[in-house]
Structure formats: C-alpha cells, structure tokens
Design a protein around this nucleic acid. Sequence first.
DNA 1: GAACTTTGTGTACATTGTACACCAATAAAC
DNA 2: GTTTATTGGTGTACAATGTACACAAAGTTC
Lengths: 248, 248
Amino acid sequence: MISHKIVPNISVDCVVFGFDFEKLNVLLVKREMKDNGSGAVLINDHTLAGYHIFEDEDLDSAATRILRGLTGLDNIFLEQFGAFGQLDRVSSPKDKMWLDYINQGFADRIVTVGYLALIDNTKVTLTLKDRDVSWFPVSMISDMEMAFDHKYLFYKAIEALQRKVKVEPIAFELLPDYFTLSQLQKLYEALLGTSFDKRNFRKKVAQMHYVIPLKKKQQGVPHKPAQFYLFSREVYEKTRKGRISFII
Amino acid sequence: MISHKIVPNISVDCVVFGFDFEKLNVLLVKREMKDNGSGAVLINDHTLAGYHIFEDEDLDSAATRILRGLTGLDNIFLEQFGAFGQLDRVSSPKDKMWLDYINQGFADRIVTVGYLALIDNTKVTLTLKDRDVSWFPVSMISDMEMAFDHKYLFYKAIEALQRKVKVEPIAFELLPDYFTLSQLQKLYEALLGTSFDKRNFRKKVAQMHYVIPLKKKQQGVPHKPAQFYLFSREVYEKTRKGRISFII
DNA sequence: GAACTTTGTGTACATTGTACACCAATAAAC
DNA sequence: GTTTATTGGTGTACAATGTACACAAAGTTC
C-alpha cells in the first residue's frame, strides 16, 4: 500500500444520489465524537463523502477514489457542480474540534470541489465494514445537522441536478439497466418534485428513441407485468437534436 | 496598500467575453519574454486573465479583483464553469520558464477555478496603462498559441456559455442597457453560431415580457431608426415559467 | 372466480415553432 | 428634392408539440 501525500487545502466532496423506486436519497457519513473521560457526546451529525486530494491525482480521480471507498463501485456517474472557497467554510467550533480530533489540523483555508454522483441503488450494498455510511431521503436533509457547509453544498448539488436532468439524459444513471416506464416516471417526479400525466409522459418517452423497449417483462408482480426498457447512450448521442431555445 | 498573502496552489482564471455588435470576443493577456542577452523572443503568446487567490478572500472576490484590475469595472457578470486540477496543467518547458521568470516558482500542483465573465463592451475602454490586454474574436482562438491549459479552459467556457445562454437570460449582460432587437438577434447568432429568421425571432422576444420596448429610437443612422429595448431582471424573476422538459 | 392492483392506450384542443416577402423610415449621393 | 442604399418592422398558413382526460387488460391473492 502506497501512502500518498495529501494537498492540505484542497478537497473534494461528493453528493451521492440514489433512487429506491420511491424517493431520492443521499449518501451521508456519520460524524461522531465523544468526550474521552465522561463519554458525553460532543459531536453527532453527518458529512458528505469527501476528502483531501492527493498530490499525485487529479480532481476526478480523487472523487472516484472516495466513491470507490464508500460503495465499492467504480464507473459511477460524476459531474462537478461547483467550487467552494468561502472563508468561513470550516469555522464553527465543532468543525475545528473535529479536524483536530481526526488529526488533520486546520488549514484555515480549504477550497473544495463539489461533485454530483448518481448511482444505481441496486448495485450497491452498504453495510460493508463500516455502517457509518447510509442513505437519507433528500426530503429529510433540511432537518438534519450537517458538518461544515455541507448542507449548503447539498442544496447546490440538488439545484444542479434538477437543472441538468431536464436537459440531459443523466437520470438513467439512477436506474438499473432494465427499468419500467412507471419507474422512470416516478424517478422524474422524485427528481423534480412534480407529477406527470401517465399518458403524456409515455408519449414523450416514445419520442426518445434511445429509450428502447425489451422483450422482457416483469415477473412475479401481483398485477399486470410491465415491460422493461433500456437506455442506450449510443442512440442518444446519434440522435440528439439542436435544441435552440432561449427560454421565456 | 495592503499586501496580501497568496495561496500558492489555488488560482482563478477568467474567460471574459465581449460583443462588438458583430462578433464575440475574448479578453486575453499577452505573455512575452525575451532572452536577456540576445533579445531573442523566448515566449510570445497569450493567457487568460488569472491569478492566485489571496489567503483572505473567497473565490468570487478573487475573480472580481482580477477583472477590476483589467477593465476598471466592478459589477461584472461572473459565473463558475468548472474547477481544473489536471496534473499536467502547468508542465510545458515554456510554462515552467515563465513561472520562474515572473518569480512565482512552481507549485507543481495548481487547481484553478474557471470563471465566465460577460461584459458590456461599451462600458470598457482598454488601452489603460498597459496595452497587454486586448480583445480577440473567439473564432480566432483555435489558431492562437496559449499558455498552460488556457485554450482548453476557453473551450470549456464557451461550451458552458452556449449551454447557459439557451436557458437563462444572461446574454443581456453582453449588451448595453439599451439595445435594438437586431443587436439582440446578432448576439444570439454569434453566441450559438446559428442564424434566425427575423420575424420568428421577434415573435419569440415579444413573449419575453422582460424585454421591454422604450420610447427612444436610434438617431443618426442612415436607415430607418430602430427602437430601443431594455432587459428587466425584475420582470424576468417574477414571470419565469416552470420549464419542465427533459429533452428528446 | 372475485377482488385488487398496476399496465397500457387515443383523441380533441391549445400552444408553440417554422417558413416565407414586402413596405417604411432614414441618411447619403446626386 | 429626387433617387438610392440600407436596415427596421410586420402577418399568415401549416406543422409539431404540449395538455387534459377515462377505461379495459393482465397478472396475483384470497
């Protein structure tokens, strides 16, 4: 195992989204610290998945490394949603105490690059070695305590996600390889916080020739089985349109 | 004058766009270095407007500071388009020689945050003290020599610009307060590299209630004078629509 | 086989996009 | 002051897309 030198004032934070066919979730890491003597709980909240970058890796690699550590997966969809360098990012007493505790000292000035990650929930089983990592419904985040400016980063991430999802077919990254149209619809509804008419939704999907029906159907469901579809990036790339439309 | 401590491994680069009613231009800074003895030209190319950040300023402030230095203007439209941390960003012999020459040594690892800036050409007069800063048509960039990975950053910036301009009314930042519809149309054509039908374009603009006709008309032009319009951000914010439309 | 649950389909209307051609208003030239 | 050159400004017919809306079909469970 090679030990890498970290860059003390640059880090990467990943906002990892997953979809359980009902709602959107985010992956958070528990942060816990007790007083050595009394055992009193000093810190008990959550952070995004993040770490410093190493001297010898670029930003995308750092994000990939962090996600591999948490989920065991490579090849996760990743996209930057911003760089954050506010002076007071890491300034609360708790946060300083924490950095001291985990022995990172405090660079008084850390710039972090935010990454949006979309993962297919069915491919991940958490509860690996550490159960400090778990999924939380995005609707719950507003009521949670979070470290540093991570709640702010989360909001920025979800804004970016909603913006991008309307314009690029990245939502499919949150679904398994085969999915039904109802699952797709629920996903978009969860992402955008709206609801769609079933017939109109399907009419629209029918025009997306890169969403391809398979011969396969659902099995063992207590109702009419749905047909499976798959997303083809190749077809998408070949058939994308001009989309000139500055908005009203 | 206070002297600030710089953060050696973090910088900000600004891709500054302007519009001269004919084409899009970018602001570049000349980089020149001659051999002390022979006077031979060792480096003669261009860089984006960029510098390290200071310990006591955040990223946006750094970008604002850099632009104030170049243009004399505050209140310039600014938006991040990415963070760049490739290991080989600053690696060519020329670039190393240059960093040595301007006495910055070489941090072997610099992360830069890219900012897109849109400025109203009519408000800037360059040729201040230094004439090392000047406008170049974006169409010319592909043939130019540029420092570091700045050509790459430029392409990323223009991609982001084209994406955003279709979806948010930021193009107006490139126009004077009062403008004609023909100027607006030429601007969009320059930005997107397309051309529009005049009547259809105007029909579309007519639906944007935040583009407001004024009583004023052009004067002294050798043809029918055009009406002036203005962009109202307030009206825009109040009337923006839902725009749910994941793309085909 | 009855009850339950989710799938899958079509039509009428409104809105938006697109293709296309001519007169109007001004300054400059004569 | 008449002509010329140049850009500004307008409407209509058709195609494509968005939207509102209701019911039968295919499975499982009991």
